[in-house]
Design a protein around this nucleic acid. Sequence first.
DNA 1: ATTTTGTTTTTTATCTACAATAAACATTTT
DNA 2: AAAATGTTTATTGTAGATAAAAAACAAAAT
Lengths: 299, 299
Amino acid sequence: MARQNTVFKEAYNRYAAALRTDTALPSEPEIAAQLGVSRSTARAILTRLSEEGIIRWNKRQKIVLRQPTDHDLFPSEETDSLHDIIERSFMQRILADDAAPGMQINELELAREIGTGTTSVREFLIRFSRFGLIEKRPNSHWTLKGFTREFALELADVREMFELHSAAEFGRLSRDNQSWADLAAIRDEHHAMLADINQRFKDFSVLDERFHLLIHRASKNRFIADFYDAIAIVFHYHYQWNKTAARQRNERAIHEHLDYIAALESRDQAAIETACRAHLHSARQTLLQSLPQIATETA
Amino acid sequence: MARQNTVFKEAYNRYAAALRTDTALPSEPEIAAQLGVSRSTARAILTRLSEEGIIRWNKRQKIVLRQPTDHDLFPSEETDSLHDIIERSFMQRILADDAAPGMQINELELAREIGTGTTSVREFLIRFSRFGLIEKRPNSHWTLKGFTREFALELADVREMFELHSAAEFGRLSRDNQSWADLAAIRDEHHAMLADINQRFKDFSVLDERFHLLIHRASKNRFIADFYDAIAIVFHYHYQWNKTAARQRNERAIHEHLDYIAALESRDQAAIETACRAHLHSARQTLLQSLPQIATETA
DNA sequence: ATTTTGTTTTTTATCTACAATAAACATTTT
DNA sequence: AAAATGTTTATTGTAGATAAAAAACAAAAT
């Protein structure tokens, strides 16, 4: 098997699920654009839909004959991209309790465990290495540096530098910039979440990511944006495995965000810096407290 | 050919060049450690030295029979690692005049041009992508973002944040830290270079890199260190192709460095910040002026 | 004249294989 | 016993092959 057709399968599921009986489908290029795939893939989807008797397809005529059932869709295991599968599997491994800093990472072993080729694992590790959690010795193995206290502190330092910079830039955006509307929407969502905090505190991490991403985008700096991508992925997995006191922690963060948003909306640079610092300080504490107490790097 | 033996060839050249007739060589593990390779490779080197009649080898007895000549060494084309070859070739391409931002990068074409497999090119591009000069659209081609004005400004912004941070940390190092001695040595080298600036201005870039690296190391932050690695590589190639007014530019930078070093040695945080800002401001101007395109505005 | 469909070509993503290198194990020498 | 050498095994680095996906080209329909 040279390449998996997960793009096709995932897009097929997405498109099939949205079909409504007796409607006519648009042109091939339009379908392709809707799904974000090439026309070749769009045609493959139409071909299969036709073969399965879900649509009748003759040149420009594409009519939905019946609603697809769950049975028509590809199972979810087959629609994940290999990269995502490897990422999940790898993060699970390195955030597990027995993953000690300094541990060697074996490409072949990882590949076998995940059921994939070594090339893909290798490429994943190279991409992943920019997050600073693993390191390679040339011609030899990868080493797990681990989610240690040092890592958290270094991450927090850079994050603070970047976010202070981005927040200041945000405060300088012209009043008609779209970001102000986006910020207002996010502010409202914070209020809504706060009103129903006991039920919804678990949704905070998604909102948190969107909020900080909006701020970082204001800097229009690719290095800052890339770094935030890295943070987001690391946090995503980390907090998924570390749910201690999530409700309290999140409620507090929401209040800080609201102060921070108010400061941004005031466009007062001094107020922005104060609110930003306050939130980052507490985020740093949260991060440090979430670490397994033992993990300390030896190097 | 599955893998090139450049590690062996490069280490062989290194070791052969240092041999002196009639001396006895140390044990295999010691040779391996000296060269920074595995004992297997060290043994391969000894085997070849023996076959070529350069040493007599019998178990622990390893005696140098004759001085190796240039003829005994591997030609330099064969000792470069594939990664370096690809890097050089690729940088040459993207810094060439006809490399316009937005240009597509084709893995197969690059591989054929360099005379290598696609896998290596792919891995190189993934690694290289963290420098922000290229970008990938999944399932599709890489795009050259290019050494543009935006790139230079974004790079300079992050560099300034990081270096101000690192310089401040440097100023807080305890007096007995090795870095102070290293800094003094670098200071003296600056004076030496200045005394003979007309001959030696070309060596400045190496000194410049060592100086800034020393400062960044003080931060003990992997993200800052990694970013500086990226800068160093990009600058290395960029200034190699852009030699306009190198002498003047470098002389000025040396003076700024000396002010900066003096400020660091004063351990006065305000003075450090002032000198650091002054140098970074001028480095930014230098970078912007070196760009192929049009005029620069003052930031 | 554009847009759509039909067809072919190009390029990427991924697997497998294998030599180079590192690492581990076994034996000998000091 | 510790260190060195001898031998075997494990792991990485790289090429080459191939299916999936994208892109380009050609013909037809509005």
